[in-house]
Design a protein around this nucleic acid. Structure first.
Length: 429
RNA sequence: GGAGAGGUGGGUGAGUGGCUGAAACCAGUUCCCUGCUAAGGAACCGUACGUUUAUUCGUACCGAGGGUUCGAAUCCCUCCCUCUCCGCCA
């Protein structure tokens, strides 16, 4: 959620910034709503004040044994007026909240203008794509030939399309990747290993910005609108990790808070029918090691560089060529103010594909969650800044290793840093 | 899942209809005193929104949401959570 002052004071300028990312803010109707809210709120409070004052005088009159009947009659009329004012106000507030929650974050000035991924800016490249002197296979064929290590038929039978069964050395390699990443981030990069619920409530989904706008992208145990509040399967552990800070006030001494978690992620992939239908790239269930930082506002852009670097380190140690992209205004996520994507080289697709996305959300999520910190002395609590990034997507890392490290005979070499996690195995297949 | 007990400010914990935005204690901040990093004393010490701005004042919030009432932390209902016992179970 944006700072209300952006929607009151210089709303026109805010609308311009939102336009950069293709969001049309209805300025006039918002101003109208705000003005109505203001006058209605003042009137409601005045009525309440009057009621409170008179009720108190009734109490005193009663205590001193006076006749309170005339007073009662007088206050009686106030009630109805107050009730209707209250009701009107609450409708209005709901409307404003709904509108506010549907507005995306403002893009940072450093973010390039663009409509879609074509507008993203390449920042840097690392590594050189390998030259193959044989006909290369993609990870689906490679995996299938590794003793059915990657089995989409079984996945489809069990759950449907976009699900997979992994076996044997491939399944182990998948686990090794996740273990390696967790160890790296906890031992080298200062993140606390965290194990989180995979099902979360609506407050959590709202806190990080998935709800109410993107309900269709997640799986729910019950319709989220139904009475009794269904839980949602997390689309990323960013949701539980970040929501740990919801309604908390941290001491500045505890910042920055750096957490990492390995978790399955569940996405309904609504609206992506026909995209990446082959292989492990886009599944309903995948695994990811997530990095989350909660920081003081002044340090969040530095933290974004640092966090992105932590994700890059994984790729470097795995010796996978990648490039770093600065997302343009049109390609950024709803709550992000600035996002770097890391794209790994996939030889079979002859292109770079997203394997990590690292974002600074500023106070956008913190405001929704009321996640705050208190500076020195008895300062007022202030909203902290939240960041998150994949470090990395495990399935896509597996894809990258399979494809980049394939040999002519269909075997795959294991990156050296993973040997300890593979029981010393240097090659699979 | 069943039975019982609870959810109050950073913490402990009073408060069963008006004088309670909330006692007391602890922690914290500031000041005073004291010749030592001790002891003592005083004041301050929730959040949000609105209003005003030398200074204010108002409203809401005692797990959440409804209800009763002129008036609710206090009474009623629903839900959530915690604890104890039982059941079940990885």
């Amino acid at each position: 959620m944006l700072d209300p002052k952006y929607l009151r004071g210089d709303i026109q300028q805010t609308a311009e910034k939102l336009k950069r990312r293709g969001f049309e803010l209805d300025v006039n109707s918002f101003i109208e709503l705000e003005e109505k809210r203001k006058s209605l709120q003042v009137r409601t409070q005045e009525l309440q004040n009057e009621r409170n004052v008179r009720s108190k005088s009734i109490g005193k009159a009663k205590a001193s044994g006076e006749d309170i009947q005339p007073l009662l009659a007088e206050v009686g009329k106030l009630g109805d007026e107050l009730d209707s004012a209250k009701a009107e106000l609450s409708v209005l507030l709901d409307e404003i909240t709904a509108l506010s929650q549907s507005i995306p974050n403002l893009p940072d000035d450093s973010v390039p203008q663009g409509e879609d991924e074509a507008g993203n800016l390449e920042i840097s490249r690392w590594g050189t794509p390998r030259e193959f002197n044989f006909e290369i296979k993609d990870h689906v064929d490679l995996g299938a030939n590794l003793s059915k290590g990657v089995d989409f038929d079984a996945g489809a039978k069990l759950a449907g399309s976009r699900f997979v069964v992994m076996r044997g050395q491939v399944a182990r390699l998948n686990r090794a990747i996740a273990q390696f990443m967790l160890d790296l981030h906890t031992e080298e990069h200062g993140y606390e290993e965290t194990n989180v619920p995979l099902l979360v409530n609506q407050e959590s989904m709202t806190g990080t910005g998935q709800f109410p706008k993107f309900e269709g992208d997640s799986f729910h145990t019950k319709p989220a609108t139904e009475e009794g509040q269904g839980l949602s399967l997390i689309p990323t552990s960013e949701v539980p990790l970040t929501n740990i800070a919801r309604d908390e006030i941290y001491s500045i001494k505890d910042l920055p808070l750096k957490m990492t978690a390995f978790s399955p992620c569940f996405r309904s992939e609504a609206g992506s029918h026909g995209r990446d239908t082959r292989g492990l790239i886009r599944l309903h269930q995948f695994e990811k090691v997530e990095l989350v930082q909660l920081v003081e506002p002044t340090t969040s852009f530095d933290a974004l560089e640092e966090l992105t670097g932590h994700a890059e380190k994984v790729l470097q140690l795995l010796e996978l060529p990648y490039r770093k992209m600065l997302l343009c205004t049109g390609d950024m996520g709803f709550g992000a103010c600035k996002t770097y994507d890391l794209e790994v080289w996939l030889p079979a697709q002859d292109t770079y594909r997203e394997i990590s996305s690292c974002s600074n959300m500023l106070d956008f999520q913190a405001r929704r969650m009321q996640a705050r910190y208190r500076g020195a002395h008895g300062d007022k609590p202030e909203l902290l800044h939240t960041l998150n990034g994949s470090g990395l997507a495990v399935g896509r890392t597996l894809v990258a290793i399979l494809e980049n490290n394939q040999q002519a005979d269909g075997s795959v070499t294991v990156p050296e840093v993973l040997w300890p996690y593979m029981g010393g195995l240097e090659k699979i297949g």
